Simulated scan of single mutants.
Amino acid sequence: MDKDIKTILLITYDNWGFNQYIADALEAKGHEVKHINFHHFRYKYPNLGYKIFNFFTKNTGILNLKHQHYNSVILKEIEKLNKIDTSIYIKADFLSPETIKAINKKSEKSVLIISDSINRYPKTKKILTLFDKVFSFEKKDCEKYNLIFKTNFIYNYVEHIPEVFIYKVFNISSLDNRFPVFQKIAKYLHQLNINYRIIIFTSKKENDPYLEFSKTTLSISENNALLAESEIMLDVHRTQQQGLSFRVFESLGLHKKLITTNSDIINYDFYNPENIHIIEDVEKISIPELFFEKPYTKVPKKFLEKYLIENWVEELI
């Protein structure tokens, strides 16, 4: 086997499908990739008693039967691999230290990617020392825990900008504590008579005159189809999050303007106020009319090279 060809184990909780792009990019370079996406694993309670037991034990931090199931299945999966050059983990806080150590014992190199704030997933702190390299998109976490800064990536790059769009502004998100912000922005866009579409995923019954709700999540291809129909993207960052979300990198790859609540975007090399409008205060939203009217100023591809998935993966292996 070519010495440059590596066997790579990618372990992720890929609920949206973004991490498959990492596997695809590594395979495109000729590497052998085993992608274990434990979001696909299903745990069935043997009976109601187990379900009640798990409710109490997981909320007290004693035991989570679903997570125990994830660990068990993953360990069985790696038994089939004789050698691993690089193990790459995303969402490793679901895994036990024992599982991580067992995998790393078979690996020449181990890498953890954190694409959330550690404040949001504090269990991550307990496993940081188990990896050879730890990357994070959160600058504050990098400084606090001595991690390597690494943004999210552009997984979809197009050469040409479409001329016709169905929606002026678009966003698709899950229901969480950002909901009141989406409500305020949607109402503002409605008052400006802007043609927008903001979809909120939730299993609960919700009602808002300015938002659309869906109980069914969309596939990546369905999401990309909606993005293609939209001229401007909306990004609402999570509380205490500074790292840039995938919305930002989707807008870069598709050459779309962006409305965002994340003021830290001003510190990135691709920032251009003609393309990116920052909502500093959701209680006093004010977006210039010209921002909606002027066309996108295309960012030269040479400035986006490091964010493209085919280049972004190089640092991992």
Rank of each mutant, 00 (worst) to 15 (best):
Y188K: 13
V158P: 12
P180H: 11
P180S: 08
V164G: 15
K184N: 07
N177K: 07
F137A: 01
I154T: 00
E143Q: 08
L147Q: 10
L189G: 08
N156Q: 14
F135M: 02
L130C: 09
R120H: 12
Q183C: 15
D116L: 00
E143F: 01
I114N: 04
Y188R: 04
F137E: 01
L175T: 09
K126F: 10
V134I: 10
H190D: 15
F170D: 15
Y196S: 10
V134G: 11
I148N: 07
F137V: 03
K139I: 00
N152T: 04
R197K: 12
H160G: 13
F165T: 01
R197V: 02
I194N: 02
K187R: 11
F179S: 06
Y157V: 08
S115N: 15
R178Y: 02
K126Y: 07
I194G: 09
Q191P: 01
L147A: 03
L189R: 12
K168H: 14
V134A: 05
K133L: 15
H190T: 11
D116K: 04
I148C: 04
N119R: 13
N177L: 06
E138L: 03
I166K: 15
S115Q: 13
K150P: 03
P180C: 06
I166T: 15
P122W: 01
F165D: 08
F165I: 03
R178F: 02
S136L: 02
E159N: 14
K125E: 00
K187G: 12
F153L: 06
L192Q: 13
P162W: 07
L128G: 07
P122F: 03
F170T: 08
N119Y: 12
I166S: 15
F135K: 01
L130H: 05
R197F: 06
V169H: 10
L130P: 00
L112W: 03
N119H: 12
K139P: 00
N146E: 09
T151W: 12
P122E: 02
Y121S: 01
Y145E: 10
K144N: 14
I166N: 14
E138R: 01
R120T: 06
N119P: 12
I194C: 13
V169N: 05
E159A: 11
S174C: 04
K139A: 00
K126S: 15
D176L: 03
N156I: 12
H190Q: 10
K168M: 12
L147E: 02
I194F: 08
D141V: 02
I114F: 03
I172P: 09
K140R: 12
N195D: 11
R120P: 02
Q183H: 15
I166W: 10
D176M: 08
